[in-house]
């Protein structure tokens, strides 16, 4: 049970101060941290402000104060590719939704097996699963591309989504295994005595209890898929099928330094969903990366 406590509450919330610090050094420390935070976020803030500036001003105004709101940048950026930018947002949303559903279903199934079942070859399979977390996608992309092109899947969303239904994101399998291991086995035993088989225990007992791990998986999948560029660049070459990162990149190459205002505007639009996911889900994000990183 100490094991359980360790795993369920790996990120304890702020413990009280060990010893009071002198206020002087504390103020210096906070000033330093706030300065660093400002330096780190400044480029992003500046991009948001610049997306509302005329082009010639972007290269003259390193500050954050706006003379006026030039929302035309957004209209211009929105309409300057083959399709309105909304088209690419929808494409990205479809891919992201598919990936989230796929990861939730397939990773939780695999995690239940690794965390709760005894079977032949478990150790070896578990080691292989952990090994694939560290496998770079570049090592498998060529044969994968050949496979999907022979299936006629190039320029569809299938190469991006189908693998997620096959639990290829082992990172999430591991995250869920960790979480399930922390759930009391007594609950399974009770359900088993009541005559429930594994599918039932999984659906009725384990799945409802692992909502936090599912939320972490959903949010990470959302952000990583939304930002993913490499595989979307490779599998989507038809402009009609472009997702946000690929569309944004084609826009950059088409307008090299002529229209930074509208380029920044679309960059801001593309980051907005990530930022919202971060705001809504930061508790799960921080717990998620902490639990998979520590004992």
């Amino acid at each position: 049970m100490t094991d359980l406590q360790e795993r369920v509450a790996p990120v304890r919330e702020e413990t009280p101060p060990i010893r009071p610090r002198s206020t002087g050094s504390s103020i210096v420390k906070h000033a330093g941290l706030i300065l660093l935070a400002l330096v780190m976020l400044y480029p992003v803030l500046w991009m948001v402000v610049s997306s509302l500036r005329p082009n010639n001003e972007i290269f003259r105004s390193p500050g954050l104060i706006l003379g006026g709101l030039r929302i035309e940048n957004y209209a211009e950026g929105w309409n300057s590719l083959a399709s309105p930018f909304g088209h690419y947002l929808i494409n990205s949303a479809i891919v992201v939704l598919g990936c989230v559903i796929g990861n939730l279903m397939s990773c939780s199934l695999a995690a239940y097996a690794f965390a709760r079942l005894e079977f032949t070859g478990k150790k070896v399979l578990f080691a292989i699963m952990l090994g694939t977390i560290m496998l770079p996608i570049h090592v498998i992309i060529v044969p994968q591309y050949i496979l999907f092109s022979q299936l006629g899947w190039i320029n569809t969303f299938l190469p991006l989504v189908v693998p997620k239904f096959l639990a290829t994101d082992a990172f999430f399998v591991f995250l869920m295994v960790q979480f399930i291991r922390g759930l009391p086995r007594e609950l399974d035993e009770a359900a088993r005595i009541d005559g429930a088989g594994h599918p039932r225990i999984f659906l009725r007992v384990v799945l409802p209890l692992m909502v936090p791990a599912l939320a972490t998986t959903a949010i990470f999948t959302f952000i990583w898929t939304w930002n993913d560029f490499f595989s979307q660049l490779i599998y989507l070459t038809d402009p009609d099928k472009y997702t946000v990162p690929v569309a944004l990149r084609s826009y950059v190459d088409a307008t090299v330094s002529t229209s930074w205002g509208s380029m920044f505007a679309m960059s801001v639009v593309s980051l907005l969903p990530v930022f919202l996911a971060f705001l809504l889900g930061q508790r799960f994000l921080i717990k998620g990366i902490a639990t998979t990183g520590i004992k």
Binding site: S106, F119, P163, F165, A167, T168
Partner: peptide
Amino acid sequence: AAFFFLSPWFAGLVLITAGPV
């Protein structure tokens, strides 16, 4: 039961990960 729960993962391992390696 393990076969049932692991079959999607195993198919992914063969087709998408280890196979391509």
